[in-house]
């Protein structure tokens, strides 16, 4: 038995395809990204080694820092909106009739492609005929905003479809975690005279804290990677008002053909994502796991 289950040839044969693909298409490109960042390169002609110049330029590139700031802003909003999702999940998990149907309805936007969501919300935000401004005009608003074309609003306007897309996902996760809490604990607290709000704050939320921590990591790290939705909705505009790190990198490489500098930005995006992940994991780490 043990001999058969440690057959080296079989292990190699079964593991190799996965390792090979991940090595060649994920690990190597990530390393190459850092290496290409050392080059002056338009993607077609020969590369020229220029040392750390691209990285030095990036550190002083106002556009890069602006896009990084927008990414962090989205990460902050995403983390804060978890509170809303948690409240909805707490309500949903408290013996609500139709809870199962409701969480399915909530999840539908999550299943659509970011491109379709972006195109749909471009229409929702259409200044004259969109769903939103039609409603605003109906209620007598004189000059409803020109949502995606207004540099002061564009980034916030983009955040609404992001909430729309992910709300169902986080509600689903919180709901599943809340449903896992043993009912006997809740009943005992009720007999002791605890109010629903007390039960939620002092028992339910601490009991699902591990899940909440995972969702904080997911939402923050996910925000740093946002691309599709923003690229389609505004292309980072107007005038860079909604540019994020990934869209800035993409434009540098595939629209301005500055592959060297684009690679450097891509590598910085990787480093920033890893650092943020480590920081959040550290901040949310607990010394002891909660037992129940």
């Amino acid at each position: 038995m043990n001999k058969i289950m440690s057959n080296k040839w079989i292990i190699f044969l079964y593991t190799f395809p996965a390792l090979f693909l991940i090595g060649v298409l994920i690990v190597v490109p990530l390393i190459l990204s850092g290496y290409f960042g050392l080059m002056d390169w338009d993607g077609i002609s020969a590369m020229e080694f220029i040392g750390l110049e691209n990285y030095m330029v990036a550190l002083q590139d106002a556009k890069f820092w602006e896009s990084a700031f927008h990414s962090f802003l989205l990460a902050l909003f995403s983390a804060l909106s978890l509170i809303l999702y948690l409240i909805v999940a707490l309500i949903l998990a408290s013996k609500i009739k139709g809870a199962n149907l409701l969480r399915k309805i909530y999840l539908i936007p999550m299943l659509l492609s970011s491109v379709a969501i972006a195109q749909l919300w471009i229409k929702v935000y259409n200044p004259t005929n969109g769903m939103l401004n039609s409603v605003l005009i109906f209620f007598g608003v004189e000059n409803p905003p020109n949502w995606l074309a207004d540099p002061d609003i564009a980034l916030y306007a983009i955040f609404i479809p992001i909430i729309w897309q992910y709300a169902g996902f986080y509600i689903l996760i919180y709901y599943a975690a809340l449903k896992n809490i043993p009912q006997s604990l809740i009943e005992a607290a009720k007999i002791d005279g605890a109010s629903p709000v007390q039960i939620a704050m002092k028992m339910k939320i601490p009991l699902i804290m591990n899940v909440i921590k995972v969702t904080i990591v997911l939402s923050v790290v996910g925000s740093l990677k946002y691309f599709d939705l923003i690229y389609v909705m505004t292309g980072g505009g107007p005038n860079g008002a909604s540019e994020v790190m990934a869209s800035y990198m993409y434009k540098l490489a595939f629209e301005s053909y500055d592959f060297g500098y684009g690679s450097a930005i891509g590598f910085l995006l990787l480093i920033i994502t890893l650092i943020v992940t480590i920081i959040i994991r550290k901040l949310t780490a607990t010394k002891e796991e909660i037992q129940y």
């Binding site: 043990n2 390792l19 290409f36 990934a246 891509g266 995006l269």
Partner: peptide, 28 residues
């Protein structure tokens, strides 16, 4: 199956969960 490097290999596979795909895009 029983082998020494199974958790290492699992770790390598899981790298893909953390990284932003855009960082790999130009080299790909």
């Amino acid at each position: 199956m029983h082998w020494k490097f199974s958790s290492l290999v699992l770790g390598i596979i899981m790298i893909g969960l953390m990284i932003p795909i855009h960082s790999a895009l130009i080299p790909l």
